[in-house]
Design a protein around this nucleic acid. Structure first.
Lengths: 398, 398
DNA sequence: AAGCATGTTTGCAACGTTGTAGATTGAGGC
DNA sequence: GCCTCAATCTACAACGTTGCAAACATGCTT
């Protein structure tokens, strides 16, 4: 099929080349390519052959220029080195594909500047829309911004109430999720709880506002249960990675050996905590129960398997794409805020014997071995997109 | 800055709009935008103001159409749910950014068909180059293909000798890496070694050719050491994920309780193996040494921390981009094959006390806590791209 | 056989940009 | 004050595509 030239990379063939070969007008070739119905069968046939012969492919940029529409959507996330974001990105790629769109992936790991660039119209206009998970962007920036430069959907957890015109917001209700997580520990009879994952505000800015929302959820649950909270049981950490959990847990347990439950800001922290507790000779969950947040792929493989909050990434991606595509399609109503669902996954780190005590073959894993509590929040959009047929999982990479 | 319209999303401003406002020709505005030197200062100033006022951004598609060059490069990898690929993708995104290019990320998780589509010119022409990590594509397809439809760099491990015109190949020498890994176990005095990670060939095709290369390396090391290999010590697995390692290790140890070292196809398998050995009451590394491949982010957090082969993803990405950009620039020499370096990372799972016995705060982690043996393979291209200044690496993802 | 409806094909213009080459301006030299 | 030359600016065309409307062909009706 891909015909080849003897040597040298030449200019790719265009409609014109096909037209000349098939001896029709350029427009007719275009009509054939676009399945325009009123083309004589014989002509169509001839054109098709010519297309194959010269190896014609539509030039996307020209189409875009002409029609003003591309099939591309930009996704900007902080960094794929966080498995939460890489999994989320994969969801977006798959869902976009299903909707006939291609994801242009931008990573804002370079920090606040990169985020601002992305938001401020991306310094150059690309694709028809933007899905954006800001991490460090100051709230005031949003406030100042009356309208986004292209249709935009924000995802993440810590945006201000008022969004710019032309944007929507799909989020996981972190507070409510953490309330659930905390109540789960309380329901196990744990009363001396700690929250690990407070980050110092640097220069007056809050690097992880999702952290404060999760802390708020923790607090709210305690209050609801009528339990006084001990301020020093809020453990600071330097960042939200495993080593930070490891280090934080040591400090925490030194200060408060009485603690019987730790609510962690995310799974990575929790896994670090598990390692530390193990080193300190504390048994999980008997002595201390630990719960995380994110349901990263390795949380079921932690020792013991980690209980956690599982945000419904699939639903998040599907919803975000749907509302974005709606905006691209011309909808220009006021900003909407939509909650994506999450669930509480109970494993061994909070309830002995709750999950597997042995990993099972992958297929069965998620179905049987865990107790999943589909939690409170509303699923606003249909989340059950059909799974593509195909030999998807018969074998796997490396 | 982004000026706003009272309401309604309007057509984005063009050069023409700026030109009218500044009362100059379109071309002059273009000249200002492109920093063309021969523009009177006063004019330049006036145009600049107009640009700000209307909020002009260059329309990338029009530029591309006109110049025939885009700044976009397509990266096609199997699935971001594998941390190897998501980390690799992040490297590519960062490196591309550094080179003023944007990565268009495609995932071929849909399988062989998706891979073929990507390779065969992507059904539509996009961006000006392709970096492609095929997984399932049959070798014969490459053989049939005389020339790629756009400049292409293949990455991965199992391509045939002859590549299509217009493409290059950057790889990690899997065989040699596995020789090193195996020799490391031998050097620890282990002699009853097993390889875990053979996958049944389905329908005559080898789903994981990287698997067979790694097995070959294992074998070669044994032969070099003059050790007879026991065929039944090659453990089959259903796939290359943790549960498969878990299941495989059970079978293996039942058949061969004498085994004192297991070389695993990748880290995920190895982590499953560790879990199984733990359950069987075998101590690692005292009773059995275990080594993986990939250096996934959680391997230092395995219990015990996992020794492994660390492919230099940064170098891989940098090299691939460099050769691709060279081709985009017009170079059309014969296909090149370039080896990217790797290293052997020794941790507790092969040498007690080798690595950390406790995770350290992130900053110190990679520098101090591990023994890294920069291994054999040749770094063909300069791999030391300057690290961007900025808060990029003050904390390490984990 | 002319008229008309339907089916098929085409030319033209435009999307927003930039390369080329030519037009205009201004300054300096005589 | 006129001419030359450089600096500055502009008109035009083209990149490859598609919407529009008009042109052409065909077959059917009367």
């Amino acid at each position: 099929m891909p015909s080849s030239s003897p040597s040298g990379r030449r200019r790719p063939p265009t409609l014109r080349d096909v037209a000349e070969l098939a001896d029709v007008s350029i427009k007719t070739v275009s009509n054939v390519v676009n399945d325009y119905p009123h083309v004589k069968d014989s002509t169509r046939e001839r054109v098709r052959e010519a297309i194959l012969q010269v190896g014609y492919r539509p030039q996307v940029v020209a189409q875009q220029l002409r029609t003003g529409e591309s099939t591309m959507i930009t996704l900007a996330v902080p960094s794929l080195t966080f498995s939460y974001f890489s999994n989320l990105a994969q969801e977006f790629i798959d869902e976009a594909q299903r909707r006939g769109r291609t994801i242009l992936l931008h990573s804002t790991s370079a920090g606040r500047e990169a985020e601002r660039t992305v938001l401020e119209g991306f310094e150059r206009v690309f694709g028809d829309g933007l899905i954006f998970n800001p991490l460090q962007l100051e709230e005031e920036l949003f406030a100042r911004m009356e309208r986004t430069s292209q249709p935009t959907v924000f995802i993440g957890e810590h945006l201000p109430e008022t969004l710019p015109q032309g944007s929507d917001y799909v989020r996981i209700d972190n507070v409510s999720a953490m309330v659930d997580a905390t109540q789960h520990l309380l329901a196990q009879g744990r009363t001396k709880l700690a929250f690990l994952g407070v980050i110092d505000t640097v220069l007056g800015r809050q690097p992880h506002s999702s952290g404060s929302m999760r802390r708020d959820g923790f607090l709210a649950a305690l209050e609801q249960a009528g339990i006084a909270h001990v301020p020093t049981r809020f453990q600071q950490v330097g960042d939200w990675h495993r080593p930070d959990g490891f280090a934080g847990a040591r400090q925490l347990m030194e200060r408060h050996p009485e603690i019987d439950g730790i609510v962690c800001g995310n799974d990575d922290l929790a896994i670090g905590v598990l390692a530390q507790l193990r080193q300190l000779g504390r048994h999980v969950p008997e002595d201390v129960a630990v719960i995380g947040y994110d349901d990263t792929p390795d949380s079921p493989f932690a020792i013991p398997a980690l209980s956690t909050i599982a945000p419904d990434k699939h639903s998040l991606a599907a919803t975000a794409l749907d509302v974005l595509i709606e905006r691209i399609g011309g909808y220009d109503g006021p900003p909407r805020t939509i909650d994506a669902p999450y669930s509480l996954v109970v494993r061994d780190s909070t309830v002995a014997g709750a999950g597997m005590n042995a990993p099972l073959p992958s297929e069965v894993l998620r179905e049987t071995a865990e107790t999943t509590v589909p939690a409170a929040t509303t699923a606003t959009t249909a989340t059950t997109a059909p799974i593509l047929p195909g030999p998807d999982h018969e074998e796997l990479p490396r």
